[in-house]
Design a protein around this nucleic acid. Sequence first.
DNA 1: TTATGTGAACATTTTCACAGCG
DNA 2: CGCTGTGAAAATGTTCACATAA
Lengths: 246, 246
Amino acid sequence: MSQQRHGSTPGDAGGVPAFPDLPEATIARLPEYLRALHHLAEAGAETVSSEGLAAAAGVNSAKLRKDLSHLGSYGTRGVGYDVALLVDQIEYILGLDENRAVCLVGVGNLGHALAGYAGFASRGFRVVALFDADRKKVGEVINGLTVRHIGELERVAAEESIAIGVIATPPGSAQAVADVLVAAGVTSILNFAPCVLAVPPNVDVRKVDLAIELQILSFHEHRKASLTALPGGGGDATGDQEAVGS
Amino acid sequence: MSQQRHGSTPGDAGGVPAFPDLPEATIARLPEYLRALHHLAEAGAETVSSEGLAAAAGVNSAKLRKDLSHLGSYGTRGVGYDVALLVDQIEYILGLDENRAVCLVGVGNLGHALAGYAGFASRGFRVVALFDADRKKVGEVINGLTVRHIGELERVAAEESIAIGVIATPPGSAQAVADVLVAAGVTSILNFAPCVLAVPPNVDVRKVDLAIELQILSFHEHRKASLTALPGGGGDATGDQEAVGS
DNA sequence: TTATGTGAACATTTTCACAGCG
DNA sequence: CGCTGTGAAAATGTTCACATAA
């Protein structure tokens, strides 16, 4: 119904793109499609069917087609999707062509790993600054970046126009760090500390809690164990590949 | 309608508990409630209202009450929930009282951090073994555990009855590691490698992709930027505290 | 009177099944 | 024909608003 023209194409990054408002569930899957597409492109594929891409991304093909239809995608009936074109489309929608600057606060165990995580750079992000409150860590060089004191955050954030802040501190410090980030004008925060952050409504927070994922798995282990006590097959279930919902 | 009696209580861990089948969305939030409850308990609270717990967990109170009602919880009308009792309930449901054994495969940057992550031990998991394919890493001691070669996984998994395997390898090795875990009888996998794993239907896989979260934030940054070009308030939106859906 | 527990309304997401384009 | 794009149906999740119990 609306697929012929939509917003703007990757080429014209200038104007106001009449931004398509995608369902949140779709947005969360786009990065997965993108990864699969890059993989296919490296393998030399020029086009891919919804079936093929869906398999590579671990979803079913109907969902994939529906998702792509929301961005008004350029599939060809009877053929499939142009891999390179779709990569550009998705990268544009996700804003990955803007090479956003990211800073990381807290260089403990996890912060160290994140600072060196190649997946950030390879997917359109520049880690431009590391901060910590601990003076003993200030000055340390990780992956070519020098750790600075958190007091410098506000100044550096402005200088480097940092778009996203990553919090990898203990939970007790996370809210204070979030406040500093917000004061510095950062409007997107990725929080690894196991706590809830209070931020103004214009700031987006996403949370990753490593232990939560384990606990969800534990629930399913517990359930499986309680079921084996009952009669019936042994294995079971509906036979989906990725059994637990993401 | 069914709240008086339900399955079994934490105390009686023996029988088959007529396992309540909770909505997936509810399960995913239970760990968050649990964290908030522990926090409240440490602060000395004996009871908490749905309003109070909801705020501490970052959800609204209606959702919290609905979630807890699914596990047939023991709130008292006019008063609230008994903190200690609710902790026991949720820990029982999640199977956290069983102190599951976890192994970690891949001790690179991220694996190192995970091996030392205190959040695992503190929430009912025992990291009992570390593995790597790289002979140079075998023998290294991390957090009191010696890294073993992946060839030993099958034997060790049986000895230690490992319930959950965590994959922190590069994506190219992840499927092979998953195959080894499955062969060793592990039925729950937490995958940090950015790739899709194929496993039998009785095995649960959950995935954490650090870069995906950044890409979702990037999308919202992109959208915000394209909206500021338009007229209207400036700040905006509906004023929710955690603006981006989890 | 207070705050839980819950039907019923609403919203979102997934799946189905097929029309229609290449 | 094959495969995309999409209405319509089904399933799942959230919010409302109030009956109900302490």
